[in-house]
C-alpha cells in the first residue's frame, strides 16, 4: 500500500500542477456562525437549560430532583462513576441498586448511567464528554437514561468556543439530547442505540 500512497500523491500533484493560482484560504471569524441574538446578555446556565429542553433533554440543578425523576421513571438499577458516588449516594434512598463498575456482559441490566461531563454548550444544549472524565464510554451510552454531571463553570456559550477547548483528549463527544432517528417515514423516534433520556445535572 506504500505504492498506493505514492500513486495517489503523485496524481494529486499532477492534477493540481496546471492550476495557475490556488484558491486562498478565506479570512473569516466563526463569530458569523454563532446565534448571538440568543446568547446576548444572558446567563449561560439559563440558555443551556432552555436549549437542552428544545432537543428533549432535561437540565436539573438539584440531585434530589434527579433521584425523584429516576424513581418516577421506574429506573432503579444503574451505574454511577465511582468518583461521583460518595457525593450522590446520600440523595438515593430505598429501592435503588447502584453499581460503580460497569459490567459489559450485562448491559441491559442498567436502566441509568451517571458519568461526569467535561463541559456543556449553552447555544445548543449539548453536554461534552471526553475520555479522561468519562469513567466508562459504555455506561454513558448503553443504559436508557444517561445523566451527565456538568460543572456550572464549564458551560461554554457557543459551539466555536467548545471547538477551541477540545484540548488534548483523544476522544471528545458532544451529546445533544437523546439518541434519535427519523429513518422510518421521517417520524422522530428517540432512544435508538444510545440513551432515550438525556439528563444534565448541573452542579457548582
Amino acid at each position: 500500500m506504500s505504492d498506493d500512497r505514492e500513486s495517489i500523491l503523485s496524481r494529486v500533484r499532477g492534477a493540481l500542477a496546471p492550476l495557475r493560482e490556488r484558491a486562498a484560504m478565506p479570512d473569516y471569524t466563526t463569530e458569523i456562525a454563532v446565534m448571538r441574538n440568543l446568547l446576548a446578555g444572558r446567563d449561560a446556565l439559563a440558555v443551556f437549560s432552555e436549549r437542552i429542553k428544545r432537543v428533549n433533554g432535561i437540565a436539573l440543578t438539584d440531585p434530589a430532583a434527579l433521584v425523584e425523576k429516576l424513581r418516577a421513571g421506574g429506573w432503579l438499577h444503574g451505574y454511577c462513576d465511582p468518583a461521583l458516588w460518595p457525593t450522590l449516594a446520600p440523595h438515593f434512598g430505598e429501592g435503588f441498586k447502584v453499581e460503580t463498575v460497569f459490567d459489559r456482559t450485562r448491559v441491559d441490566d442498567y436502566a441509568f448511567g451517571i458519568t461526569r461531563a467535561a463541559g456543556a454548550i449553552a447555544e445548543t444544549g449539548t453536554v461534552i464528554l471526553d475520555d479522561v472524565t468519562t469513567s466508562s464510554r459504555l455506561a454513558a451510552l448503553a443504559p436508557w437514561v444517561h445523566v451527565a454531571v456538568v460543572n456550572r463553570a464549564q458551560i461554554f456559550s457557543d459551539l466555536p468556543q467548545a471547538v477551541a477547548a477540545l484540548g488534548a483528549d483523544s476522544n471528545v463527544i458532544w451529546c445533544t439530547g437523546p439518541s434519535k432517528t427519523a429513518d422510518v417515514e421521517g417520524i422522530l423516534i428517540e432512544g435508538v442505540h444510545g440513551p432515550g433520556v438525556q439528563i444534565a445535572l448541573v452542579v457548582d
Binding site: D131, V132, S136, S170, I173, W174, C175, T176, P178, G194
Partner: peptide, 16 residues
C-alpha cells in the same frame, strides 16, 4: 445528537 472528535486510540484510563 452526537458529534465525535477522535484523534487516536482510547486514553489509557478509559476501560472501553
Amino acid at each position: 445528537v452526537y458529534t465525535e472528535f477522535i484523534s487516536g486510540p482510547k486514553s489509557a484510563a478509559q476501560p472501553d
